[in-house]
């Protein structure tokens, strides 16, 4: 066979075999659940980054004269007890929720990838040590641990919540990275790379990491939704994001005192919160289905 023919055959084979990611993307594109959740998340992210696109009302300018107005053309979702526009507060409150969600998941991802790769790739005593630490952190329920951490930090920003969620939430993701690294380690292409003289760092970075990341991405998407819910719960308990920052959880908590007389101030932020969590869970489910070869 001439060299040209071999190259041609290889190109043909390449055209017919798609990578797992390409396959998954093809599946995802046809899944309406993926598009619905992606559009919701895109809208929410835009809302968090440029709230002015969605409302020109200042969420902090409240007139007591307008207290507890029902929904109208001027105030789409009505006003709360202080006379603030609920819609504007929801728009501006999305930033805290998404910031907490994305930052703490990024934190978790960094811890999980580093620890999971070390434990899975090197094994031995580092694996045993990481497993014991994971056991210990797993013994602390997320909400309770976050309560202990946050009841002592008085910093008016999202960072304490991010720190608490990151420090307590990395265990599941780490275990998943570890097990997928272990299964990727035994693949032929890793052996081939090692025989070609690649060092550990190159093998881990170029060969194992890209192939072991799919399951952890799925889990992190779902975790993002859960973290947003936990942040709102912590804010509801009065120990979440402190200071003047508008958050959905704080607004819901503030409105509950008046809950028997007016529904709106509780229902509208709650609906947005639930929709956000739902969007991330659905996205995670859609991605999981796309990556799971058993379901094809």
């Amino acid at each position: 066979m001439s060299e040209a023919a071999i190259a041609e055959a290889a190109a043909e084979a390449g055209a017919n075999t798609r990578s797992l990611a390409a396959d998954a993307w093809r599946d995802l594109r046809r899944n309406p659940v993926f598009w619905v959740s992606a559009v919701i998340i895109a809208l929410l992210v835009t809302m968090a980054v440029v709230p002015r696109l969605f409302t020109s009302t200042d969420p902090h300018s409240c007139r007591l004269r307008d207290s507890l107005l029902p929904p109208s053309g001027e105030h789409w979702f009505g006003t709360n007890l202080q006379g603030c526009d609920i819609y504007a507060r929801i728009v501006y409150g999305s930033r805290a929720s998404l910031e907490v969600g994305f930052l703490s998941v990024a934190f978790v991802a960094v811890i999980a990838v580093i620890l999971g790769m070390i434990a899975g790739y090197y094994g031995g005593w580092s694996d045993a040590l990481i497993a014991r630490v994971t056991d210990i952190v797993l013994g602390i329920p997320l909400l309770l641990g976050a309560i202990v951490i946050l009841s002592s930090i008085e910093l008016p920003s999202v960072w304490p919540v991010v720190l608490a969620l990151g420090l307590l939430g990395w265990t599941t993701a780490t275990r998943i990275v570890r097990s997928s690294v272990i299964s990727a380690k035994q693949q032929d292409y890793v052996q081939a790379a090692r025989m070609l003289g690649a060092n550990n760092r190159r093998i881990m970075g170029r060969h194992i990491a890209p192939n072991a990341m799919a399951p952890v991405i799925v889990i992190l998407t779902i975790t993002l939704g859960q973290f947003i819910a936990v942040e709102a719960t912590l804010s509801f308990l009065g120990i979440g994001v402190k200071g003047n920052t508008i958050t959905w959880g704080k607004d819901i908590a503030a409105a509950t005192a008046r809950v028997t007389t007016s529904l709106g101030p509780v229902l509208f932020p709650s609906a947005f919160l639930a929709l956000t969590v739902l969007a991330f869970i659905m996205l995670g489910d859609a991605v999981r289905e796309a990556f799971d070869p058993k379901l094809r």
Partner: peptide, 18 residues
């Protein structure tokens, strides 16, 4: 069940209490 999973418990509780 998906809806219940996405709505935080404090929201469900608060609405029911209301």
């Amino acid at each position: 069940t998906l809806v219940v999973i996405s709505i935080p418990v404090f929201v469900i509780g608060q609405v029911l209490a209301l």
